[in-house]
Amino acid sequence: MKLLVPVKRVVDYNVKVRVKADGTGVETANVKMSMNPFDEIAVEEAVRLKEKGVATEIVAVSCGPTACQEQIRTALAMGADRGILVEHDGVLEPLAVAKLLKALVAKENPELVILGKQAIDDDMNATGQMLAALLGWAQGTFASKVEKDGDKLKVTREVDGGLETVSLKLPAIVTTDLRLNEPRYASLPNIMKARKKPIENVKPADLGVDVTPRLTVLKVEEPAKRQAGKKVGSVQELVDKLRNEAKVI
C-alpha cells in the first residue's frame, strides 16, 4: 500500500506569536519554523505502517514556499521515501491545498493519505476532511489508533465523550490526533541519507489548480489580555474570595 503524507511548515509550537503592528497578520520573519506537530504524528504513523510491512512507499508532500523543503527533508529523515513540493508563495487555504493534493493523488495513486488533524497556525482543522470529500473517499478523523483490517481500515477516533471506532473502505483519509503515537527523532545517519532522497518540484498551475483564496483577512488583532490577579495566602482565604468577592460559588 502506497501512502501520501502532507506536511505543513508552521511557526514552531514553542514560539509566542506576535501580531504585526499594522494588523495584517502575525510576525513570521525571523521566527523558528517547524513541521506542524500533528503532521509529525502522521509521518510517524506512515513509517510505522511501513515497518510493519503494511505500507510499501511513503511520499511526503508540502505545499508552500521553497523553504517547505526543510519540512519535507524532516519527513524523509524520519523514514519517508521521496518528496513532492508544490511551490507557491501566497496564501493557501485548506480548500486549495485539498485540490492540490487531489491532483497529486490522481498522479500517485496512494491507497491512504494520512494528515495532521489541524495546523497550529490557522487552526482550521479542515484539509483532511476536504480532501476526502473531493476524492469521494471515506474519512477517519482525529485518529488515536489505525489498523489494517483485511481490505478495510479500522480507525479509533477521539470524540467528545470518549472514543469511537469506524471501519473505512480503502482508499481512505486518516487525520491524526495527539495520542496516535509519539514521533521519533531522526537519527544523524538518517538525516544524512535523507539529503540524497529525491524531491520533485511542481507548481499549482502544473496541476491545473486555481488556488485563489476565498477568505480575505480584513484584520488581525491581539485578543484582550487578562490581568494577573492576586495571590491568596490560604485555602480559607481562597474560598472566602470565591464566595464573597467573585461570587462564583
Binding site: K16, V17, V19, D123, R214, E222
Partner: peptide, 15 residues
C-alpha cells in the same frame, strides 16, 4: 475567528 491558539483574532470576509 481565533488563530495561533487564540493568540490572535482574525476578521475574515468570505467571497
Amino acid at each position: 475567528r481565533p488563530i495561533y491558539a487564540g493568540n490572535a483574532l482574525a476578521t475574515v470576509k468570505s467571497a
